[in-house]
Design a protein around this nucleic acid. Structure first.
Length: 594
RNA sequence: GGGGGUGUAGCUCAGUUGGUUAGAGCGAUCGCCUGUCACGCGAUAGGUCGAGGGUUCGAGUCCCUUCACUCCCGCCA
């Protein structure tokens, strides 16, 4: 028998009554009755109540023991009387009468309590992460993460994918995020970069003829953090397939995600076949390319209405003439909402830096009319036209925003969320997935007017290759797609461009000449010219998947040892300074600002 | 780089219009308590009110600067 324990803390039941057992774990809680002491012993698996009274020679010592001390307890399993059974825990029908104990790991005074539902500052949680991770919720989150990852590994195997590792020390690439750089000792003055994703490697794996690849891959990007974005590093389920079209990738990923989400969450999936929404449509209907489809509200463009003579809303009419658009959100049956409901939303919009949200409610006496501050500007006929366009009925309200396209998308997107929240329209406990498709290949920087890749420079443009219109690059769409779930971007992927000549042409549009492409992507370009299969893939974010499954709003709640917002590890003290000798060996010298 | 929020005991927080000696719960220490499961009861210790400067007879409270944490914008092919 193991010298520390005969059972785990979730194992003992009525069937074990009378047995002599040994348990090992942490002192979760003590309840000291003076002559009788209860100790809740906790391990990874559960909690067992242990009991000792003053007749036992160990009593005095155990009474003084610090919480979170690691102990081994030997004793006898006792039946609990009916009125003392604890239904909250698995072992609640029994308790262990302590005969002897040994301290395996002592514990200093704790900087934060373990057994508590209280919330603590991130700072203290991250500094003492090993204590924080003992707490129930986050402990369970990490177990969930482990299970999700091994489930996915297994499923990918079943689907015929091979798992390969790719280099962590690789080369820096233009485009995309800031790289983390690693100086090379053997090559003075040169640097490796940590991969932002194994993008080029997975394509090379396809060129190598492996057909289907996957990896739970670490990705490194030196960008600022967000609640759903760890600074520095995160994990992707990176996958790539040969001889596939977009729909083949969708098929595999839908199957995998549906299975995973059904397995690990009680929440329903709104649709097992994920709706496809074009990028352009998404921006129009939701104001964003990551729409939360649990929210039933849809944005509608009604600019045309403001060109009519019987609409006299002059502020909007003027803006429309100078190139602005008007978009609206219809709320069903909000006729009787108090004035404060509408004004609050208007005020909120102003706080968001917009010029506010105009609104009116459609009502009917003899005739249809608009009620509200700007209602008087709309004729009966124009209202009927609006009702037709937006499918609004009498009793519905309409919120209006007018601005240039990009700003309009921004404000209608957040207004759509805000209004839905205020009206409690967002369905909870469901997952609403969708594909966002048909991304443009290029985009134009508003300030510099420079054309750059809007997503991935390796994506295959849509349409016949020799008929592509390079004169109007902004019109070219790509076989580029994102998965969005509940408003969170889970992943993006693409059918890749495996034709070198086409690659040169596309890079030329973004301002790279042949030599630059050869320099920066030598491995890729070279490989593509030796018989590359058509291929494509995607890379769902593991952390965000687990976040959704664990119903957490912050990615640190599903990350074992996260860094803080300033990309520091408070527990390990990273990043840290290094010895002068180390710098010298790397041919580096520091030249700090200030 | 920019904007918002927070910072008071080991932890979580309260602290009124600027007014005497800055409080509570948990934790710690000591004592009482044989059926608790957030056990109960009593006592004790524990404070650079994030830091620095200013206004004032008097600052946890008002002003300025600064630091830390966090949320957001930029950024994230």
């Amino acid at each position: 028998m193991n010298k520390y324990r005969s059972h785990k803390c979730d194992q003992l039941t009525k069937n074990d009554v009378g047995k002599n057992v040994s348990l090992a774990g942490w002192v979760n809680k003590k309840r000291d009755h003076g002559n009788l002491l209860f100790i809740d012993l906790r391990d990874n698996y559960g909690i067992t109540q242990c009991i000792i009274d003053k007749e036992n020679a160990n009593f005095k010592q155990l009474e003084k023991i610090q919480l979170e001390t690691v102990v081994k307890i030997e004793g006898k399993v006792l039946d609990r009387s009916l009125d003392t059974i604890n239904k909250e825990i698995k072992t609640g029908e029994i308790e262990v009468s302590i005969k002897s104990f040994a301290i395996l790991g002592s514990c200093k005074e704790l900087p934060m309590p373990i057994f508590s539902d209280q919330e603590y500052s991130e700072e203290i949680r991250l500094k003492y992460r090993f204590l924080d991770l003992r707490r129930k919720k986050i402990h369970e989150n990490m177990i969930l993460r482990s299970k999700v990852i091994s489930f996915i590994r297994n499923e990918m195997g079943q689907l015929g994918f091979l798992e390969f590792q790719t280099p962590i020390l690789t080369s820096s690439s233009p485009e995309g995020a800031r790289d983390f750089l690693v100086p090379s000792r053997l090559n003075p003055g040169k640097f490796y970069a940590l991969p932002q994703a194994p993008q080029q490697f997975k394509q090379l794996i396809m060129v190598s003829g492996f057909d289907k690849y996957f990896q739970i891959a670490p990705c490194f990007r030196d960008e600022d953090a967000r609640a759903d974005r760890s600074p520095g590093e995160f994990y992707q389920l990176d996958l790539e397939m040969s001889f596939v079209e977009q729909e083949d990738v969708f098929d595999v990923v839908e199957k995998l995600l549906v299975k995973t989400f059904e397995r690990f969450s009680k929440n329903k999936l709104i649709s097992k076949k994920f709706p496809r929404i074009s990028y352009t449509d998404a921006l129009l209907k939701y104001g964003t390319d990551k729409p939360d489809l649990r929210n039933p509200l849809v944005i509608k463009d009604i600019t045309e209405i403001f060109k009519r003579d019987d609409v006299t809303f002059d502020i909007f009419k003027k803006l429309v003439k100078s190139g602005s658009n008007v978009r609206c959100i219809v709320t069903k049956n909000t006729k009787d909402k108090p004035r404060s409901f509408f004004d609050n939303i208007d005020k909120w919009a102003k706080d968001q830096g917009a010029s506010g949200l105009a609104y009116f409610t459609i009502d009917k006496d003899k005739d249809i009319y608009a009620k509200g501050p700007v209602g008087k500007f709309f004729s009966k006929e124009s209202l009927q036209e609006i009702m037709k366009e937006t499918k609004a009925n009498v009793g519905d309200s309409i919120f209006l925003a007018c601005n240039k396209k990009i700003e309009l998308e921004r404000i209608t997107s957040i207004a759509r969320n805000k209004i839905a929240e205020d009206l409690d329209l967002i369905e909870h406990n469901v997952f609403a997935f969708c594909w966002i498709v048909d991304y443009p290949m290029f985009e134009k920087d508003e300030q510099t007017h420079k054309i750059s890749f809007s997503h991935n420079p390796f994506s295959m443009p849509q349409g016949e290759i020799n008929k592509l219109d390079f004169k109007n690059p902004l019109e070219i769409l790509a076989y580029q797609y994102d998965i969005v779930c509940n408003g969170i971007e889970l992943s993006s992927g693409a059918i890749r461009n495996h034709i070198p000549e086409l690659m040169y042409k596309l890079f030329a549009v973004a301002g790279y000449d042949k030599k630059q492409v050869d320099d920066k992507f030598s491995g890729m370009i070279n490989a593509l010219s030796f018989g590359a299969p058509p291929h494509g893939g995607i890379a769902p974010g593991i952390d965000r998947i687990v976040m959704l499954l664990a119903n957490e709003k912050n990615i640190r709640e599903v990350t074992m040892f996260p860094m803080n917002q300033n990309a520091q590890d408070l527990m390990m003290n990273a990043p840290s300074g290094v010895e002068e000798d180390q710098l010298k060996e790397l041919n580096l010298s520091l030249k700090l600002k200030k």
